[in-house]
Amino acid sequence: MSKIKLAHYWGAGCGGCDVALLDIDEKILGVAEIADIVFWPIAVDGKVKDVEAMPDKSITCTLFNGAVRNSENEHMAKLLRQKSAIVVSFGSCACYGGIPGLGNLTNRKEILELVYTKLPTSDNVERVFPQAETHTKDGDLELPVLYDTVMTLDQVIDVDYYMPGCPPTTNLINEFLGIVTAHVKEGAPLPPKGAMIASQKTLCDECKRKKAVKKIDRIYMPHEIAIDPDKCMLEQGIICLGSSTRAGCGAKCLEGNQPCRGCMGPTAEVLDQGGSMLSALASVYRVEDNEALLSEDNIATLMAQVKDPMGTFYCYTLPKSIIKRKVKEKKQVKKEV
């Protein structure tokens, strides 16, 4: 059996997805048995020029983590797509934008202004900003162009499979590697294109906490009350995205006695994770007995308690949500670095 070729690359991510691949522990040795890792910057010494020299579709499978935030991320996504038979959108950043996707609550100009000139530690009276091209006495240097909007991987290239999670858990990674191994060794079929390598259930199904049908009077931040580790978070007044979030992580944050913030992304039935959570929250909020629905006043009082609705309901999924980003200013700024 000849070995398959694997690649793992990062766009706008944090390296946690790369560490997640190491977290499969001794199984990484099994991966080495069936695969050559041809490109994996965090752990292997291959260069972009090596990838460029590979024949098209010669990489059996590329795991791509991180969102698309700049021109290099986009270029590498397209290059790896061209060179790979299978591309997996790996982790929440690639699938939904993830934490870097919160960048869509601001824009390129605001980010550059703040980071390079306005911080308390900034020393930049000359207003120097990173440039796409810099002429130095030694030669020209290039940098990628920062985009205004953070994109998910599938907004830029065609994706074969999705594996959400920030980072994806060992179980999901092993499940996928099992599928690939069975395919390589025994010719077992691969999942249909577009498949989500995760549970089809909702996180609440996976969560061990006791659920009663209890209504809440107000919302608490996790540090404001002594959390009962056996009871549903939401029923204790703590916003937990479990009911709108895909299962598959083992309810890890709940095991840590903290609410779910939704890193696995929306469930199969739910289109928009934040929107779905808002209605879930409204449904547990106490209303006067004679009213079936929340009045506008009720909704206003409820929402006034959520300090940061976008960060709370769309923490990991903004670029993939219906909202996608904060509305752009009408007058578009000219592209410049």
């Binding site: 980010i111 990173p130 996790p222």
Partner: peptide
């Protein structure tokens, strides 16, 4: 030695709940 990436945490942390 060039760093070709920026995600802009400084900017998008503004407006988030401090507890998050």
């Amino acid at each position: 030695w060039q760093v070709p990436e920026l995600r802009g945490f400084e900017a998008f942390c503004i407006g988030r709940s401090v507890e998050d």
